[in-house]
Design a protein around this nucleic acid. Sequence first.
DNA 1: AAATGTATTCTATATTTGTAGAATATAATT
DNA 2: AATTATATTCTACAAATATAGAATACATTT
Lengths: 125, 125
Amino acid sequence: MQLTKAEEQVMKYLWSLEKAYLKNILDEFPEPKPAATTIATLLKRIIDKGFIGYKQHGSNREYYPLVKKTDYFSLQMKSIIKDYFNNSAAQFASFFTTESDLSEKDLKELQKLISEQIKTKNKAK
Amino acid sequence: MQLTKAEEQVMKYLWSLEKAYLKNILDEFPEPKPAATTIATLLKRIIDKGFIGYKQHGSNREYYPLVKKTDYFSLQMKSIIKDYFNNSAAQFASFFTTESDLSEKDLKELQKLISEQIKTKNKAK
DNA sequence: AAATGTATTCTATATTTGTAGAATATAATT
DNA sequence: AATTATATTCTACAAATATAGAATACATTT
């Protein structure tokens, strides 16, 4: 299941905090802050969706992500690639490298990475 | 402004048709098709958001995208990269190449593309 | 133990989104 | 001219989402 925008925002704060009490998350929000009950509602919904867990400490809970940011991100990417590139990661990659306007330094960095990837693939054989 | 899921679906059909009357879009939908008025409502909303234009032909309209699919996609990517990669396309690219599990053939293809990119960059100097 | 700070749950409302019926309008067909 | 096909607008309602007040509960401080 997917997170809504508001839920995602809470997730993002939690990912950056790694673990947090309601208060800590509320503190992250810029003014005008939402009501604490709003955060509580969102936390509850995110828990129901299985993205957040918690440890009970007295009457409070210490929340922590159950899904890694990169994993959640991967899902989003897959959905975009499916929608816009006919499910082809290669097609996406080629679009991305030509359109993203990376600097020469970035491009060379990328080349190195890809070389390593290819090496790893060959080793696996 | 962003499109909602239902609006995006209509956009996708319109992108693939390039231009279309309501009927043509409706035809693209698989069974069970939505009501024609539903499509009409969505079209109107998308027009208000500025993503679609039209030419009036008698009482009908021939709709066409005002935003290219790749541009719309780029916006989505930017938003994701901003959210998950601290606004660094390079960071994203490196994550992507290591995580996307491209085939060796795809990787080599990518390398070629990037080489060309670098060449183009150098020419521009 | 009373007061205070914080969190949680329950409940509720406003807004946005998805969906479509009814009424209306125009063009093409009979 | 009447009928039919199609599209459009207006209106409406249901579901999902965003937001938060009221009531309640526990822990800490006084």
